[in-house]
Structures are given as C-alpha cells and as structure tokens.
Design a protein around this nucleic acid. Structure first.
Lengths: 266, 266
DNA sequence: TCGAAGTTTTGAACACGTTCAAGGAACGCA
DNA sequence: TGCGTTCCTTGAACGTGTTCAAAACTTCGA
C-alpha cells in the first residue's frame, strides 16, 4: 500500500495487467513487447531449471542479455514474474482442459479431467510452484488470486469450471441459484488440490493424482445429493454462508449477490 | 532441503523445538535461555509495532542489546522468530480457550468460544500475521504447520479441539472412529478461519467474527447429522478420504510419533 | 590456580532484491 | 536539419537477510 508512489519511472511496469494476446494493450512498437517477452521467457526457463530462490535477477538479466534495471522496467518486482507465469499457465490450462473433456458429459469425469489437466500443465513447475503459492498467501500482494483486484487469470479459471458444469448432464437438474455459485466453489476445490500438490513430494505427484481421483466423485455425489429434500435446510445455510462470506472475499465483490427470489415451481 | 548442512555452528538454533515452559529443555545455564527469550520478546514487540518487513534483524539486535550474529545463533533465520511467536500464541490460546469454555457443554458453543478465543489472542498480531501465513504456505519451510516435522504447537492445538469435542454433549453420541478424526478436522477448520482472518481488512476483524458465528453452527449440525442412516455411505467415503489423504499429509503419520526429540548434537 | 574444551558473542563481509539518476534511441514537428 | 518529448536501457549504489572466522566468556578437571 505504501509503495504506490512507485517512483518517477512511468514504464509499463506500473500497469502490467496486459500481456495476454487478446488486448489492444501496449502502444505500438513491437520492440518493447519483445523485450518484455524475452525477459519473462528467460525467467521462466531459469525458474524451471534452478528453482525460484536460486534464480537471481542478475542471472535473468544476464541470460536475457539486458541490464538488471531493464528487467525492473518491465516487471515491478521478482514476484511479478510469477504473475506472468500464472497468467500463461491458466490460459494454457483452460485450452487443454476444454479440449480434453470435449464430448464427455459425465460431471465427475469432466471435473476429474479438468483437474488432471491442471496437474499436467503445472508438472514442469512443481518445485517452483511453492514460491508461487507463498505469494498467493500474502494478502498484501496484488498477485494473490484471493485478492480483490481484478485478476484476469482467475476469471479465466472460473469460466473453465462454469464450462465443466454447464457441459455436463448434471447442469439441467440443478437449482439455478446453486449453479451460479458452483463455478467459484469448484475453483476453490482446485485451490485445495493445488495446496495438496504443492506439499506433495511423491514422484510425479502421484499422490495428488490419486487424491483427485478419490475426491471428485465425492464432490459430484455431494452436488447431486443437494437436490434432495432432506438436505434442503443445510444446503440453504451453506449457500448463504458462501454467498455472504466466501465469494465476496474472493474476487466476486457484488456482481451477483442474492438476486430477487426466483419464483420457481419444479 | 539443501540447507540441512546448517554450517559449523552447533548452537541451539539447530534444534529450536524447545521453549515452552513445560520442558526439561535446554541444558542448564539460565543465561542462554534468557538471551534467547530477550531476543524473541524484542522481535515480537517490534513486529507488533512496525510489522514484519519493516523490522530488520539489525534493529532487533540493537534493540535487544546484542549483536546481529547473536540473534542468528539462537534463531536460524528471521522466519524462525515467527515459529517462536506461533508456539507462544498457540499455548496462550489453549489456556485461554480452555478457561473460557469451562462449564459449557453445548458443542457449537464450545467450538465458537475456542475460535473466538483464537481471534482475541491473535488480535495484536493481525498485520504481522500475513507474514506468518506466507511462511506456513511454504512446504520447504519446517515452520509450516502442514509440514511433517513434529510440530509441538500443532499437537497442542489439536489437543485443544479434542477437548472441545470431548467436553461436549455431542461426544458420547458419536461413532468412535469419527471422533478420532474430528480433532484434526476441527484444527483444519481453524486454519480456514485463520486464512479468512488474514485476508480480513474490516475493523477489529468483525467480518471474521461474523464468519465464525455463522460457520460453527453449520459444522455442529453437519457432525450431528453424520450419525443418521442416510448419510452413512457418504460419511464413510469422506472418512476414508480424509484418513488416507488428508491426515497423513499433515503431521499425523502414525498414531503416536517418536515422542521425545533429543536436543543433543555431539 | 591453570589450561583446555565447550559455549556464547561479535561485527565485518557477502549476495541478493531493488532504486535511481543519468543517458541513449526513436519519433514528431518546424 | 535541429529540437523537444517520450520511451527504453544502463549499472553503480543502497538496504536487507545471512554467514563465518575469530574473540570473549564459562565450565570444569587437575
């Protein structure tokens, strides 16, 4: 918060929320964008090769053939390189998962596929991921996916889970209001899996994969059961708790909060 | 992992798992223990006053009247000072919560009281706690409460929740096996509350307090319901998932793990 | 009391993330 | 062409966490 007077430099580092290929973004010169990409790619390669802590900013700069100050012109800090990595990976994951679950209608399978896809996309970065998670746990860092700042990567991820649900045979049978909450909850489920994965030390993170295979049927069953009468009061309580306390804390400020009671009659 | 050859120094920093007042602990000279305590207290005061990042090791040393190297003799790194803080707070919390819920038999109330007690104990450190949580999220750090290293503070916390359960009217009505898992699960619930608290920016963390008031009845209801027939299959699945995948990942490898860690380094 | 072995303390030195004043390079305009 | 403005790049310098060889102190047997 106290860093907002980020100096006299007016470089792109001040507003780094634009490097996905979709934006009108940076002025014009392809040169600048090229340097930025070079630095990010070099950093990611070194992170993969040596790990985060052992990769110094000096090494990144030298390996990329620029000065250390130049790296700071494009990335506000070493942590912002992680943001670049996270955005890229989220995007790749969304594409891969969507492709892989095409045609599959079973909700459990779709959920499992999308999580396994994440594990595959992230596999090369397992060691380095600890650092990412550390950063995510810091509420002061704008990189945290839990932080209120609009986080394009998080929106992409939540959209993917909306797709997981909507493309499944489960979707039409669900209460509309619950269906609205679920994408965010499934994203939270991914966060739990990520937490598990970060701490997983088994070869090829086999344990996490097993955890996914075991936990997704449970999630599917839980959601399916939520329609039944007996569970109504509890589901209602849980729903309002989530709506009032969980979602506003993550990105979802007020976008869709308690819409007027939908007079549905099943 | 690669730091294990922690240098030639054989000071107490190598085995800092002993400073709770219950132990036979450090050899004999009260002097050493005194210096250690002085450094820890000074650090905690400065953390409280200035925050973690703004408190430098040099400042801690100067304020405590020792050299910076001396601080490193007692604490392997700045992060290990957090461990000292965490141990102390956990102990204080266990005492406070136990006292506060004495006489109360309602499970929901006991759970709520114990969580509110935590919030009160931690209140002074709210700002600084972000850093603690950051550390907790790093699997390479032996400070992480999720790490396998025997973590006396965690054991204390889990014991507290065992007490929350056993002292309640709910305990005798529960399946024995489930009752065995619950203390760890309730500790996980605390971790969720802590996560919420860390990100909470409302004055006096009012939002977290509201979150506790709203979530504990749900937890209580969920546990109470688990006895009913309909839920059996699901409870069984969840139980085995937790038993096989969650608890082993946190400290709980086997029932009782090598109780006495000998602090001798010849 | 002496000396050796162990314990505690010191502070200069090191590596790293980060900052910043200064200087080029590119572009527009007269 | 010359000049002003903006964008990009540089690398020395700063403050920080951390290390380590050496000094100071304690303990204890002879």
């Amino acid at each position: 918060m106290e860093d907002n007077s980020s100096g006299t430099t007016t470089g792109p580092a001040a507003g780094p929320a634009e490097e996905l290929p979709g934006g009108r973004a940076r002025p014009k010169t392809g040169k600048s964008e090229q340097t930025r990409a070079l630095i990010l790619e070099t950093a990611m390669r070194l992170f993969r090769e040596r790990g985060y802590d052992k990769t110094t900013m000096r090494a990144i700069a030298q390996e990329a053939g620029v000065s250390v100050g130049n790296a700071y012109y494009y990335f506000e800090s070493k942590e912002f390189l992680i943001q670049g990595f996270y955005d890229q990976m989220t995007y790749a994951h969304a594409l891969d998962a969507t492709a892989r679950m095409a045609g599959e209608r079973d909700f459990d399978a779709r959920l499992r596929i999308s999580l396994e896809s994440w594990l595959d996309c992230a596999a090369d970065y397992h060691e380095f991921a600890a650092q990412f998670f550390r950063t995510a746990a810091d509420p002061d860092s704008s990189l945290s996916p839990f932080s209120n700042e609009s986080h394009p990567a998080r929106a992409t991820a939540v959209d993917l889970f909306r797709d997981v649900l909507n493309g499944s045979d489960l979707a039409p049978r669900l209460d509309a209001e619950l269906a609205e909450l679920l994408p965010d909850l499934l994203w939270l489920h991914l966060m739990v899996v990520v937490l598990y994965w970060v701490f997983d030390r088994t070869p090829d993170t086999a344990r996490t994969r097993e955890f996914v295979r075991r936990s997704t049927p449970l999630v599917a069953k839980l959601i399916a059961l939520s329609r039944y009468r007996v569970f109504r009061p509890m589901v209602r309580d849980a729903k309002s708790l989530i709506q009032d306390f969980i979602l506003p804390t993550i990105g979802r400020t007020a976008a869709t909060r308690t819409p007027p009671p939908p007079p549905r009659r099943p």
